[in-house]
Amino acid sequence: MASTSSLAGSGRAYSSDMEESTFLKRNRVVHFARLGLSFLTFGVAIAVVACEAPPLRHYKRTSQWANAGLALWPLNFDIRPTVAALVCGCIITALNLVYIAAALLPSPYSRIKPLNIYASASALAGFVTALVGILFTKYLPSSNYPAGFSKNETLHSWTCKWKTGTSTTKTPTHFDRDCLNTRAAFVLLCMLVGMEVLIGVVAAVGTWYQRDVSRRREAQFQLEKLEVATKHSRT
């Protein structure tokens, strides 16, 4: 009888070890997938900032020329989309940098659950940030423009309007570059939405694996407590 019980206990222990090993392998795959996506997202967010910064710097430098009668920018100009894209890029860069640092720093303790929680929160925050940046750029909420104008011009729309002008119109210096940069930044911002969704999906998979193994551990613990209680009652 004792031999049978021993064999049964040994079988459960072997099964538990197999489940733990499977969980660790899956978690390793999830960890590297999430880390790779975070590096990629970090790079794209940096690229958004790098694309938007030169046009903004060019605008700030040339907008002062209006005082000398050399205005390059219209009265209905709105710089907020460029600032919004820069802010979104900086926020997403910071979110992913924190995750990368936390994931790579060595620790004597298991960080599976904290990393799952932070990755999920970071993905949600990054998704909302990128989406708000895109919607703000497209629709310009609370946008005001002087009388006589039907809409506002943004850094992208104004520079690209000059870029695609007639052959008799000379494009101002750096407008071609600013048009391409702002267009690239918008495309990259759209990419960030999809990449944050991917990170969120991977984080959700990791959270599901972690909760599943936690339930199994709890069930195994309760079973062992029941066996100990049964043995004590027999003695």
Results as ranks from 00 to 15, higher is better:
R12C: 00
V29H: 09
S16T: 03
R26N: 07
A8L: 10
R28A: 15
G43H: 09
D17G: 00
R34E: 02
Y14F: 01
V30I: 14
L7I: 15
T22N: 15
G11N: 06
A50R: 07
L24C: 04
A13H: 03
S10D: 11
R34G: 05
K25A: 11
T4E: 09
C51W: 07
F23K: 01
V48T: 03
L56S: 05
K25H: 11
K25E: 09
L7D: 08
S10R: 14
I46R: 15
E19Q: 09
V48L: 06
S10C: 13
L37D: 03
L40G: 04
S38R: 04
S10N: 12
R26A: 11
L35R: 03
L37R: 02
I46S: 07
P54K: 06
F23R: 02
S15F: 07
P55M: 11
R28D: 08
V44D: 08
K25C: 04
L7H: 10
V48D: 00
A50I: 03
A53S: 13
R28V: 03
P55N: 08
V44G: 10
S21T: 07
P55W: 02
L56R: 04
A53C: 04
R34M: 15
A47G: 07
I46A: 09
S21W: 05
C51P: 01
F42H: 09
E20R: 08
T41H: 07
T22P: 08
S10E: 07
E52I: 03
L35N: 02
F32Q: 15
A47H: 02
V29D: 14
F42S: 04
E52L: 02
S21G: 04
G11C: 06
L56P: 01
I46P: 01
G11F: 10
I46V: 12
R34S: 15
F32L: 12
T4A: 10
K25P: 00
A33P: 00
S15T: 11
A8P: 01
K25Y: 13
G36N: 08
A47R: 06
F39D: 10
P55T: 12
R57F: 14
C51S: 12
D17M: 02
T4L: 07
P54I: 03
E19C: 00
V49M: 15
S38V: 01
K25R: 08
V29Q: 15
R28P: 02
S10A: 10
R57I: 10
R34Q: 15
R57S: 14
Y14C: 00
L24N: 05
V29W: 06
R57G: 09
T4F: 05
T4S: 15
L7N: 12
S16K: 06
S21I: 00
S6I: 11
T41L: 11
